[in-house]
C-alpha cells in the first residue's frame, strides 16, 4: 500500500489494531515517513483551502490582472504616442526636404531663364572649315557659328590640349559649356580669360558676377 493511501486512511480513521500501531510506530521512528506525512497534510489542506476560497481568489486575481494591465497601458500609450509622433515627424521632414529641393530647383531655373534672356552668342566670325582651308581655330569657330557644338567642342578641346590658356578656345568653350547647362565648367573656362580683353563679354558678366 502506498504511503499516501496509508496517510489518507489514518486521517479518515480507517486504520485499526496492528495497522494503527504500526503506522504510529513508523511515524515516531522514521523521519522521512513523518516529513511526508506532514507534506501530505499540507497538500490536503491546500485542496481544502482551494475548494473553499477558489471563487474569491479568482475574483481577486481577475481584478489584479485588470489593474496590472493599467500599469502597462500608460507606458504603451507613451510608446504609441512616440510612434505616432515619429509617423508625423518623418513625413513632415521628408515633405520639407522635398519642398526645399523643389524651391531650389525653381530658383535655379528662374536664374537661368534670366541669364538666357540676356545671353547673346558671340558674333559670327565668318570663318571657314578645315576642309575648305584655314586653321583648326577657324574651323572650330566655323562649326560654332553653325551651332554644330559637338564638332566645335572637339576641335576647341584639341586646341586646349596643346595650349590650355588659349584665349579664344577658352572663351568658346565657356559658351559651349554654358549652352550645355554646365555652368561650373563654363566658369572654369571663363576664369582663364584675360578680363581686359573680354571685359565686355556678356557671358563673363552673367556667370562671374
Amino acid at each position: 500500500m502506498k504511503k499516501e493511501e496509508l496517510y489518507r486512511r489514518y486521517l479518515a480513521g480507517e486504520l485499526g489494531g496492528d495497522q494503527l500501531l504500526s503506522f504510529e510506530q513508523r511515524l515516531s521512528e522514521e523521519v522521512d515517513f513523518r516529513e511526508d506525512f506532514e507534506l501530505y497534510k499540507e497538500m490536503e489542506g491546500f485542496v481544502e483551502e482551494r475548494v473553499k476560497k477558489m471563487d474569491a481568489l479568482e475574483v481577486l486575481r481577475g481584478v489584479s490582472s485588470e489593474q496590472k494591465s493599467r500599469i502597462k497601458n500608460p507606458r504603451n500609450n507613451v510608446i504609441v504616442s512616440n510612434k505616432l509622433l515619429w509617423f508625423l515627424i518623418i513625413p513632415s521632414l521628408v515633405g520639407m526636404f522635398v519642398a526645399w529641393l523643389a524651391s531650389s530647383k525653381m530658383q535655379e531655373i528662374k536664374n537661368r531663364e534670366l541669364i538666357m534672356a540676356e545671353y547673346k552668342y558671340p558674333p559670327n566670325k565668318g570663318t571657314r572649315s578645315l576642309e575648305v582651308a584655314g586653321t583648326k581655330l577657324d574651323s572650330a569657330i566655323h562649326y560654332f557659328d553653325l551651332r554644330r557644338m559637338a564638332k566645335s567642342e572637339q576641335l576647341f578641346l584639341e586646341i586646349l590640349a596643346i595650349d590650355s590658356l588659349h584665349q579664344d578656345a577658352n572663351r568658346y568653350m565657356g559658351h559651349i559649356s554654358f549652352l550645355k547647362g554646365a555652368d561650373n565648367k563654363s566658369k572654369y573656362y571663363c576664369s582663364k580669360l584675360d578680363r581686359l580683353i573680354y571685359q565686355d563679354s556678356i557671358l563673363l558678366k552673367l556667370l562671374l558676377e
Binding site: 502506498k2 504511503k3 499516501e4 493511501e5 489518507r8 511526508d36 497538500m43
Partner: peptide, 10 residues
C-alpha cells in the same frame, strides 16, 4: 489513483 496523484505532486 488519488494516492498516485498525491505522490507525484509531493
Amino acid at each position: 489513483r488519488k494516492a498516485a496523484c498525491i505522490e507525484r505532486w509531493g
